[in-house]
Write a protein that binds this DNA or RNA. Structure first.
Length: 698
DNA sequence: TTTTGAAGTCTCTCC
DNA sequence: GACTTCAAAA
């Protein structure tokens, strides 16, 4: 493993061009102060666009320059995208040594440490990671065993149960208080819920399964419960740097305390105005309490924004000034001017889509690469209409966030086969594949699993089970496949590693494709997904690595790219606001700025949630460098019950004062026939300039 | 006991 | 508009 502790030995200089002076030359005094800070806790409050990542990356370079071994630096972030960005920038700045810096999301680092040290804490090394869907399915199995499956009274559903469980773990709130706060109408079930959670925990243990929360919980526990383990784990690193600290929760704070038990070289960076992950148990108080948690903390504040024009910043500052609680100051910029951001009123969704597409093409023709533009929205599904239009017009795009490739049912199906061969006790996957087989339903599946449990999940157990007559056929073909997957008999030469996983998938598909075609109306796209899965699998050394990587670092949707080659293509980015955090674009379009959509109607009841929505919109607006357009359709069809359409209102966050910092744009009706024909392939934008000229009135 | 068809239920954000 | 759950039929 490459996580073995290494000696702290002086290294030859690897930075001929980046001595400390050039390293600091590009930084402002506040940034430089943070970068060169010594060996004590450091809290950097850094507003949007103030060079937060830059500061962090330079600090890494500075530490390496000072002789700290790169592999003894740990960079923790919250999202995969941020982790990848941070590490690649470090490498660019520092050179090859930068690639040796350790880092990743809290979950992926936790995973690495568990594989390495879990054995010493009684966790078998070959555990399987469950994603959220799997965890919910396991919760459902436990729920069913308790007999709520068909009870008349309403008992919380598996999603709610899992949410409560996860919240309980991450916020450390006692269960009764949590129920009282989140779901008071379920308070009467407190006892059953407690029992259910105990069963869920037990099932995880028996089945050798680990959920996302466990990756953090076990990490924290190893640090707290065993001084010996704590010393070994904390001893791996001399410096810890944490990005987006406002999105951490109490559990993660515990981990940091444990990791810094032998030293106090901890740097955290964040912005309370961008705290948008409370649904994961994060609270921006965490960043404010940091000095209390780590006495002697030094505070550095970054307030100069280098990203946005003054006009965009005025809008963002005005919007966030309405926040109930606020700790960071307004940002300022040396960039002056800039066009006032647009507030675009569209008649309906179709017109909103047309506006965005036309404007994107217009800017593209003006020389802005597609990749420099982004369309942002509150939730993944809100871009559906836009995606269709972009596909029709052959404009390449890439979607971030929203439904993931491996959350698709057919992908999970195939993975389930791999997972039972990887971990024969994986009950969730067993249930899944058994239910796929013709002639096997819920009760047969449960009975078969019970028999296997009696045989201690012996890998051969399934073959020797006696299936009910109508499931004979299914049982036999499944048993044959599983034997094949377990590699009974010789592994063909040259089929170690990735080729092995790919051939496993081929074997699975020999059985599964027929089932898939039966199950879905239009199987083509789904079959293509499976091709993709096999391609991806080829780059992983083993089945176990492949499965773990999929859970922690899943590839995004397969239908990302509409036209254009997959690799270096210039593509418009569509993203949820959450997934866009930390990034910046020349031009930003925020769509669906409709009250009830953004803020989400689920959030308007609760003041705290509403405040979080406001911060979320702040995050969206501060992504823009030069141009910003907020779009909202006035009529929304078919969303409210009882009416064909409803007249919706502009988001409440864009009040009169905020609107005063914007300019209103009205999209004109297009000509009589409502443009049903997509542009012909090849040259989509040929006549657009003419159309565009007449479309906007200021 | 499984399958199939119909009614019902919410819609998010991420690891 | 997709997916789950429920009820009746095979």
């Amino acid at each position: 493993m490459d996580d073995e502790p290494r000696l702290y030995r002086p290294r030859p200089r690897e930075l001929p061009t980046n001595d400390e002076r050039t390293l600091l030359a590009s930084l402002n005094p506040d940034q430089a102060r943070a970068v060169t800070f010594g060996d004590a806790p450091l809290l950097v409050i850094a507003g949007a666009g103030t060079g937060k990542t830059r500061t962090l990356v330079h600090r890494v370079a500075f530490l390496i320059e000072r002789g700290v071994a790169p592999e003894r630096i740990l960079l923790l972030t919250f999202t995969r995208r941020a982790a990848a960005e941070m590490l690649s920038r470090a490498e660019r700045l520092v050179g090859p040594a930068g690639a040796r810096v350790h880092g990743g999301t809290f979950h992926s680092v936790g995973h690495r440490l568990l594989r390495q040290f879990g054995g010493a804490a009684g966790l078998p090394a070959d555990f399987t990671i469950m994603d959220q869907g799997d965890a919910q399915d396991l919760m459902q199995l436990a729920r069913g065993a308790q007999g709520h499956a068909k009870s008349a009274k309403r008992f919380p559903k598996k999603e709610t149960l899992h949410y409560l469980y996860s919240r309980h773990v991450n916020t450390e709130l006692p269960l009764d208080e949590l129920l009282h706060r989140e779901v008071p109408h379920f308070l009467e079930y407190e006892e059953q819920i407690t029992a259910l959670f105990a069963d869920y925990t037990l099932r995880k243990q028996e089945r050798n399964l680990v959920d996302y929360d466990d990756l953090l919980l076990f990490w924290a526990t190893m640090l707290e419960a065993s001084p010996d383990l704590a010393a070994r784990i904390a001893g791996l690193y001399d410096h810890l740097l944490v990005d987006e600290y406002q999105d951490t929760n109490l559990l993660q704070a515990r981990i940091l305390r444990g990791m810094c038990s032998t030293h106090r070289r901890l740097t955290v960076v964040g912005d309370d105005a961008q705290s948008i992950y409370s649904f994961r148990g994060a609270h921006f108080r965490n960043i404010l309490d940091f000095p209390k948690q780590f006495p002697g903390t030094t505070l550095v504040t970054l307030a100069q924004n280098y990203r946005s024009t003054a006009a965009i910043l005025t809008l963002s500052n005005t919007l966030i000034s309405r926040a109930e609680e606020r700790f960071t100051k307004d940002l300022w910029t040396a960039r002056d001017g800039g066009e006032k951001p647009w507030l675009v009123t569209a008649k309906d969704e179709a017109q909103q889509t047309r506006f965005v597409v036309d404007r994107v093409l217009q800017m593209h023709e003006g020389g802005v690469p597609l990749r420099e533009m982004v369309v942002l929205f509150r939730a993944g599904y809100m871009s559906a209409d836009l995606e269709i239009e972009l596909t029709n017009r052959k404009i390449p795009f890439e979607k971030w966030g929203g439904l993931k490739f491996l959350e698709a049912a057919h992908v999970k199906d195939v993975l389930a086969f791999l997972r039972v061969s990887d971990n024969p006790r994986d009950e969730v996957s067993w249930y899944r594949i058994l239910m796929l087989m013709p002639g096997i339903g819920d009760s047969t599946a449960r009975a078969l699993m019970a028999s296997m449990q009696e045989r201690a999940w012996d890998p051969d157990a399934f073959t020797h089970l006696i299936a009910p007559p109508r499931a004979r056929e299914a049982h036999r073909s499944l048993a044959t496949l599983l034997r094949q997957l377990r590699g009974v008999g010789a592994v063909p030469a040259g089929e170690e590693g990735g080729a092995r996983v790919a051939s496993d998938i081929a074997a699975i598909r020999a059985l599964y494709d027929a089932i898939l075609k039966e199950k879905y109306d239009r199987p083509e796209a789904r079959l293509a997904d499976l091709d993709q899965l096999r391609t991806i699998s080829a780059s992983y050394p083993s089945r176990t690595t492949f499965l773990a990587a999929l859970a922690l670092d899943p590839p995004s949707s397969t239908q990302d790219l509409a036209g254009g080659s997959e690799s270096e293509s210039d593509a418009l980015v569509l993203s949820t606001v959450h997934s866009a955090k930390g990034k910046e674009w020349k031009a930003v379009f925020l769509i669906w700025a409709v009250d009830g959509w953004f803020p989400s109607s689920r959030a308007v009841e609760d003041p705290d949630e509403l405040e979080e929505e406001r911060r979320l919109m702040y995050v969206a607006l501060t992504r823009a460098k030069d141009e910003l357009a907020i779009v909202y359709p006035m009529q929304v069809y078919g969303t409210r019950r009882g009416a064909d359409y409803s007249i919706d209102q502009l988001s409440r966050f864009l009040d009169r004062g905020v609107r005063a910092t914007m300019q209103r744009i009205v999209v004109e009706e297009p000509g009589e026939p409502p443009a049903p024909t997509p542009a012909p392939a090849g040259q989509p934008a040929i006549d657009l300039r003419a159309i565009m000229r007449g479309r906007f009135t200021k």
